[in-house]
Nucleic acid binder design. Structure first.
Length: 574
RNA sequence: CGGGGCGUAGCGCAGCCUGGUAGCGCAUCUGCUUUGGGAGCAGAGGGCCGGAGGUUCGAAUCCUCUCGCCCCGACCA
């Protein structure tokens, strides 16, 4: 490909809308342009990257025994009503009505469609297992799209669905996908971690997220260096707190005046007590009829994780209650809630249980209670659970070593669905005994554009992108520094054609531009290898190969250049 | 949805407070020179100032409404 013919408008300055690195560089390197919030056009260079990623995905999915299909993006509401998600999915589901008044949605995922497809054509255990996947545009009407294609509303996703006759088969399908995913992200040149995850709206029994480690990630994970345990904080398991051998004796509860001091830090300062002696009480809305409000407790220096809390309560989501509800539930303004004497249900974090002579709110304005002892003073029926946010240094649930926290970008997510959809949508088969059974399902997603963005987050410098070889739009860019110098141009063209004939996907920068412009654009768009052809080099029979990622420069005989490029391409392709 | 910010040429911005009919840099086009890290000179084109009302002799500027975008939060395969 010749640069002069390529639709590749690079930007010298960053458009003001971009905040994160990958978004900035995707715009500047001419990969994408925005059409509306969370909706992007992909330009030629971007398409080349996406196709590379898609092809790696295809190869590994096919190798794992999955078959590619292509499902509709517009899906009838009936299927979604059958699964029960028409109402459950909420505003994120983009609903449309056709000219006859029939309701449809733009597919955010395809469990319903695939289950419908399979139930109609699969009847026997002999047809199982089956794993079908597609690479399709999805639409999710996110509340707040952001960070370019990282959290877009319209995006390309590979989604796979497995159907098995029994648990062992489903387990095997899950393992095969996990292995395929590891191969895919490894080949894409990403540093990632497969972590235990929450199942969210998709449902099902268990799941792993594939997290690309990057500071700009929206998810937080806890991980153990020693044994390799890693989990999304939403799914983190924390061991019980150490028990003191000789705890001080419990003292009688006593009210203290704490005028205007709602925050734990203020009260701690005032009472000269450590925040670890405090029990923080937060009131949450659950959306449940039987217990709309719940008090969640954690130690003063800890934070409640809303997702862990929701799971402990058994509700879809837990969010902080409005001020009026807090007043109603506790009889005090926000900041003075405490478990003793509270009428609403109490869920307390395990780490609260053996705090001795703790400080907590008195359910009375400007008042706290000291010497609270949970076992003695908490209401009857208090539930204990693991509901707090992990902290740096928390101990590993598997091996008890200290864990760390890291930010990650979720590029893939795999779920064991069980029979959630096959039962609600009646996808059954006859087993060897002639008995009718629901298929056991799994589902497996990869965000294609997000994988590209994650690759940039992990591989860039101040000058631009440094594409991993396997997903680079071009593997090498040939830079004749002066196209009017026919000796230089002849050498550049011959190297270019040679590379092209060898299938090494070269780009020839044949623009009549100064050397600096070409260097800067080559760095920006992140082609892994630059072949620099200049006057001085040509006179000595040499060309120069620059490795974008390391900055390393090699002087090479012109005749050997294509072979050296081929070598380097091979070396850098995992 | 709550909070904050921003819409002026393709991109980045100034002008707005204190109304007088739009400007800078980059990019683009033409010509000449230049060609190893975003060139120089000369010339040229491009904006009903997001939109709609209003105030005024006069609105990019003041007021009201509206649309869009970005950030934080809530939310989220």
């Amino acid at each position: 490909m010749k640069f002069s013919k390529l639709f590749l408008p690079t930007l010298k300055e960053t458009p003001s809308e971009a905040e994160v690195i990958s978004h900035k560089y995707m715009l500047r390197a001419g990969l994408i342009r925005k059409l509306a919030a969370g909706i992007y056009s992909v330009m030629p260079l971007g398409v080349r990257v996406l196709r590379k990623i898609e092809n790696i995905i295809r190869q590994e999915m096919n190798r794992a025994g999955a078959q590619e299909v292509f499902l509709p993006s517009i899906q009838p509401s009936e299927l979604w009503r059958e699964s029960g998600r028409w109402d459950f999915y909420g505003k994120e589901l983009l609903r449309v009505t056709d000219r006859h008044g029939r309701e449809f949605c733009y597919g955010p995922t395809a469990e319903e469609v695939i289950t419908d497809l399979v139930r109609n054509d699969v009847r026997s255990y002999r047809d199982l297992p089956l794993n079908l996947y597609q690479i399709q545009t999805k639409f999710r009407d996110e509340i707040r799209p952001r960070f370019g294609v990282m959290r877009g509303r319209e995006f390309s996703m590979k989604d796979a669905y497995s159907f098995d006759a029994d648990e062992e088969g489903a387990e095997e399908s899950y393992r095969a996908m996990k292995k395929a995913y590891e191969a895919i992200f490894l080949r894409c040149g990403l540093r990632f971690s497969a972590v235990e995850a929450d199942t969210g709206q998709i449902g099902g029994s268990s799941s792993h997220e594939f997290m690309v480690l990057a500071d700009s990630g929206e998810d937080t994970i806890v991980h153990c260096q020693k044994c390799g345990y890693a989990a999304n904080v939403e799914r983190s398991r924390l061991p019980l707190p150490p028990v003191s051998a000789a705890p001080p004796p419990p003292a009688p509860m006593e009210e203290v005046a704490t005028p205007g001091m709602g925050a734990v830090e203020d009260v701690a300062e005032f009472l000269k007590r450590d925040t670890t002696d405090f029990i923080k009480t937060l009131i949450f809305k659950t959306g449940l009829k039987e217990r709309p409000l719940v008090a969640a407790l954690c130690r003063g220096d800890h934070e409640i994780n809303h997702v862990k809390l929701a799971r402990a309560i058994g509700c879809a989501e837990a969010s902080l209650a409005e001020e009026a509800d807090v007043v109603k539930a506790t009889g005090a303004p926000v900041g003075f809630a405490g478990a003793p004497g509270l009428a609403i249900p109490v869920v307390a974090d395990n780490w609260v249980r053996n705090i001795v002579n703790a400080v907590t709110g008195a359910n009375k304005a400007d008042t706290h209670i000291v010497n609270v002892n949970p076992e003695r003073d908490f209401p009857e029926g208090t539930e204990w659970a693991d509901i707090r946010q992990p902290q740096e240094g928390d101990l590993c649930p598997e091996c008890a070593a200290a864990m760390g926290l890291a930010k990650g970008i979720e590029v893939g997510h795999i779920f064991k669905l069980g029979t959630k959809y096959s039962e609600s949508m009646n996808a059954t088969f006859l087993d060897a005994e002639g008995e009718k059974k629901p298929m056991i399902m799994g589902c497996f997603g990869i965000g294609v554009g997000r994988t590209a963005a994650a690759a940039i987050e992990q591989n860039h410098d101040d000058d631009g992108i440094m594409w991993p070889m396997a997903i680079a739009p071009f593997k090498a860019i040939v830079l004749p520094l002066n196209i009017k110098d026919s000796a230089v141009m002849d050498v550049a063209e011959s190297i270019y054609h040679n590379l092209d004939d060898s299938g090494l996907e070269p780009l020839l920068d044949d623009r009549n531009a100064r050397a600096g412009v070409k260097f800067n654009d080559a760095d920006l768009i992140g082609i892994p290898l630059q072949v620099i052809v200049g006057k001085k080099g040509v006179e000595q029979g040499k060309a120069e190969i620059k490795i974008r990622a390391t900055g390393e420069k090699l002087m090479v005989d012109i005749a050997e250049t294509p072979a050296r490029v081929a070598e380097l391409v091979k070396k850098f392709t995992p």
